[in-house]
């Protein structure tokens, strides 16, 4: 029995679900950021699998761009978290309610 596109897509969907669960359930900003990375990686896996099984290299180029943009996004996001921590001394989303009321 050979591994098909469906199996790769199922792994990708499960990985995306795990990342989404982390974003919803965890309360630490850094862990939420890591879970966003997990979701991006799940999308990358689906793109590479499609690219392989449809004989089209464009998907892999797209994944290359996604990885580059994700690196830029992580650096800016972590700088924002550090700036926030300097001001509020916390990296916990439940303490960051200054826009409420």
């Amino acid at each position: 029995m050979h591994i098909t596109l469906q199996q790769y897509l199922i792994v990708s969907a499960l990985l995306f679900a795990v990342g989404l669960l982390g974003v919803i359930a965890r309360r630490n900003l850094l862990v939420i950021y890591m879970c966003i990375e997990l979701m991006l990686n799940a999308a990358n896996l689906a793109l590479v699998a499609f690219s392989r099984f449809t004989n089209n290299l464009d998907g892999q180029v797209f994944v290359f761009f996604v990885i580059t943009v994700a690196a830029a996004e992580v650096s800016v996001g972590l700088a924002l978290i550090v700036a926030l921590y300097r001001k509020r001394q916390t990296a916990h989303v439940e303490d960051l309610t200054m826009m409420k009321n």
Binding site: Q7, L14, V18, L21, V31
Partner: peptide, 12 residues
């Protein structure tokens, strides 16, 4: 695939 999913669960 199993190690990807198990380690991802350990992350969250």
């Amino acid at each position: 695939a199993a190690s990807t999913l198990i380690c991802a669960l350990m992350v969250i």
